[in-house]
């Protein structure tokens, strides 16, 4: 029995390491090629031999696309988008979880039902609407439509349900306003849920591609993701792979770092709730 368990455990770890390798390999591959000189071979396994590491590909990247401008656009829409969506989803989630207003259940089912047909299917009229209100080429076009999303409301409501009613009643008796209850009582308690939802939203917004190419037509308004996606054709037809992969490294590594940092933050208890026992 003991021996069998050892064999199983060995195969388990072996398989797990293989899967991790499959997960990480394309990313590592990209990082390696992005520091190779353009002259070096990138055919097959030769790609992994770095003879003279260089940052020239990154310098070339800065010549090809307005990196700082694009990075600003990406960071702005990602950050403001995450903060606003977190705020409005939490607010609605709070209302659905903690108030017994007429029509609550029907409205909540309606919110869930809206998840089924996604906004992407109506992209054409949405573009027309955006043009009419003058939001084409405005960074706000990526932020405003998704300030409150059904899935965010659903997710945060689940956590708000666990907030004890006694705390809310106590705050109300102490003369706290309804918004004050939300902001000063409920939000601190559900911080772990907000943090995990924030990390998913941050990454999703940073990786966003469809909405930026739809709404942001001017080069100066492109997000980093759009500029990088256009790299293969931006230099005539011959952008070297090394430079393209320098671009993808530039967009992928930050999201991996953000994810890992937020993972660690959640682990070390920085976001622990404030409900006692």
């Amino acid at each position: 029995m003991k021996k069998r368990q050892k064999t199983v455990s060995f195969f388990l770890h072996f398989l797990m390491i293989f899967i991790v390798a499959l997960c990480l390999f394309p990313v590592l591959w990209m990082c390696v090629i992005s520091i190779k000189t353009v002259g070096e071979s990138i055919t097959g396994f030769n790609a992994l031999k770095v003879i003279t590491p260089t940052l020239a590909n990154y310098r070339r990247l800065w010549e090809l696309i307005p990196v700082w401008q694009n990075a600003f656009n990406s960071i702005f829409t990602t950050l403001i988008g995450t903060i606003t969506t977190l705020f409005f989803c939490a607010l609605a989630g709070f209302a659905f979880a903690k108030y017994h207003f007429p029509g609550r259940n029907a409205l909540f089912y309606f919110v869930i039902a809206t998840m089924m047909v996604s906004a992407e299917a109506g992209a054409i009229p949405l573009f027309v609407i955006m043009r009419r209100v003058g939001m084409i080429d405005s960074l706000w076009s990526l932020i405003v439509p998704r300030m409150a999303t059904a899935v965010g409301i659903f997710y945060l409501r689940q956590y708000m349900l666990a907030v004890p009613d006694e705390i809310i009643d106590a705050a109300r008796i102490d003369g706290c306003s309804e918004f004050g209850i939300f902001w000063r009582v409920v939000v601190p308690i559900v911080q772990p849920a907000l943090a995990s939802w924030a990390s998913l939203t941050l990454i999703a917004r940073w990786n966003d591609f469809f909405w930026p190419i739809l709404f942001l037509r001017a080069n100066a308004k492109h997000t980093l993701m759009v500029s990088v996606a256009q790299l293969p054709v931006s230099d005539g037809l011959s952008t070297p792979w090394q430079v393209v992969l320098a671009g993808t490294t530039l967009v992928i590594v930050p999201s991996i770092l953000i994810y890992l940092i937020l993972q660690l933050a959640q682990k070390s208890g920085l976001t622990e709730g404030s409900v006692k026992g």
């Binding site: 899967i19 991790v20 997960c23 990480l24 394309p26 990313v27 591959w29 990209m30 090629i33 990138i42 055919t43 097959g44 990454i203 940073w206 990786n207 591609f209 993701m225 990088v228 996606a229 790299l231 293969p232 792979w241 393209v244 992969l245 671009g247 993808t248 967009v251 992928i252 999201s255 991996i256 994810y259």
Partner: peptide, 25 residues
């Protein structure tokens, strides 16, 4: 580690997969 692919942008990974699946190189 097994969650990381989800964090990577599909567009950027598309470019990388385009290279991995390139016919000659």
């Amino acid at each position: 580690a097994t969650f990381l692919p989800y964090v990577c942008a599909s567009v950027a990974m598309g470019l990388i997969f385009g290279m991995l699946f390139e016919e000659n190189a």
